[in-house]
């Protein structure tokens, strides 16, 4: 192989390695940065709700950054069953956002089972989508 061609390949590898390193650093930064945010459930209107589509569970979550309220953060909630009235909502000046969970209806096809809701802060990342989150488990009961 000619020297010129070898050098070109070497440069390509160096560029690729540099890019991987930069992205890895960004990832590491966001991973650590997410750790500086705290998502916590402040209140739940009913931690033992009836497994019925007609029920509503109000969930208040607070997001803080180094102990201070994070205002205007987008909160995304994803339940393992049932649905949210709104998947995304914003935190207020106290870092608090209120979510509404609508349960599934337990029936002959779908027996009563507990629901886990993962609640993410979608606004804490800078380079990569690495969200701070918390999980809430609702112990469902039969109607």
């Amino acid at each position: 192989m000619k020297d010129g061609k070898k050098r070109k390949i070497q440069i390509k590898y160096i560029i690729a390695a540099a890019l991987v390193s930069v992205f890895s650093l960004f990832y590491l930064f966001d991973f650590l940065w997410a750790k500086t945010y705290k998502v916590e459930v402040v209140s739940v209107s009913d931690e033992n709700p009836v497994a019925s589509n007609g029920e509503r569970v109000e969930i208040a979550v607070r997001v803080t950054h180094f102990g201070k309220p994070a205002n205007g953060h987008v909160i995304f909630a994803l339940p393992s069953d049932g649905r949210m009235l709104a998947f995304t909502t914003l935190t207020d000046e106290n870092g608090v956002a209120t979510l509404t969970y609508i349960p599934y209806t337990a029936n002959a096809f779908l027996p009563v089972h507990d629901v886990e809701i993962r609640i993410r802060d979608q606004s804490n990342s800078i380079f990569w989508e690495i969200n701070a989150y918390t999980d809430l488990e609702l112990k469902m009961r039969a109607r």
């Binding site: 589509n53 649905r83 609508i102 209806t105 029936n107 002959a108 096809f109 779908l110």
Partner: peptide, 29 residues
């Protein structure tokens, strides 16, 4: 009715065509 309730409530896009089945409560909002 129980099968229709399950499908319609999950789907959330319409009402049951069967008497006694329940509608998606998201409409109540």
């Amino acid at each position: 009715p129980e099968a229709v309730t399950a499908m319609v409530q999950e789907n959330g896009a319409g009402l049951p065509a069967v008497k006694g089945a329940e509608y998606p409560s998201v409409y109540d909002d």
